[in-house]
Write a protein that binds this DNA or RNA. Structure first.
Lengths: 140, 140
DNA sequence: ATGGTTGTAACCTTTGCTGTTACAACCATA
DNA sequence: TATGGTTGTAACAGCAAAGGTTACAACCAT
């Protein structure tokens, strides 16, 4: 089980906007060319990023632009914009309450699962779009 | 996108074995009763745990038992036994090498993704089956 | 020989991801 | 006002994985 590619695509989109919005109109077609996926996929993900308040999109004329400075956008923001699930883990629904394990497993495991998920999210929170942009420029 | 319930089911299975193997024959039917899922699902997951060297299973007569002390089994061991994917993240396959972002995004992101995954795995590595067992007994 | 158990195959349904076509709504510009 | 490029969204389709179920051969203590 993997996270969908929406996360890396969304990151790619934001990097492109941050890099090119000054010089070009960044449309779904332009992005489609760099990312190499269908423009409709791009538009849907761009819609999620827009709902999350990260980008604005110009109706009719076209083009996306950042609504926040790149140092205020983290990988966690991007992840949450495109992955809607609250919990990373799917718990089996109906453990038997007549079994001592079945009765207690939720209260034992729920906190652990939260801790694990938080560890991942904290790491994502530390990585900003501006840092990714800097590293990209270094490698160019 | 969520991890499958195999992870929590596998944890439930191991807790049951650790708790009951002394007093009862822990069969897939017994486990099915506590976990409330089909015995065939249990047998498949039990097979993964067996392949990973965590449990043994008695042919013919039936019953599963731990092959390692509970303090040497971590949530990470369990997770890796039932989730076979190498990377948590699905990267879009063919970014355009003629775009400066498309050309560099892999080298920029791959390390980040590894860091994020490691943070999660380290947290899992800290939680042992014996600790879960103790907490279960406290709540009984 | 019996009966409970395991391992596995075969099938099904549902869900989510990814890709695609199509088209109405939008808006700067000619 | 008409045009053309763009967005937002609906409606498909194909594919893969999850989860469930039935069935049955192989296994082994009794």
């Amino acid at each position: 089980m993997q996270f969908s590619s929406r996360f890396t695509i969304a990151t790619h989109i934001l990097l492109c906007i941050a890099m090119f919005e000054k010089e070009t109109k960044v449309t779904s077609n332009f992005l489609s060319g760099s990312i190499n996926v269908n423009p409709v996929i791009i538009r849907n993900i761009l819609g999620s990023l827009s709902s999350a308040g990260m980008v604005g999109i110009k109706q009719g004329i076209g083009g996306a632009y950042l609504l926040k400075p790149a140092q205020e956008i983290t990988l966690l923001d991007i992840f949450k914009a495109v992955e809607k699930e609250e919990s990373l883990f799917h718990f089996h629904e109906n453990p038997n309450p007549e079994c001592p394990i079945g009765r207690t497993i939720h209260s034992v495991m729920d906190g652990k699962i939260e801790t694990i998920q938080s560890a991942m999210e904290n790491e994502m929170k530390d990585i900003t779009l501006s840092r990714l942009l800097e590293e990209t420029k270094e490698k160019m």
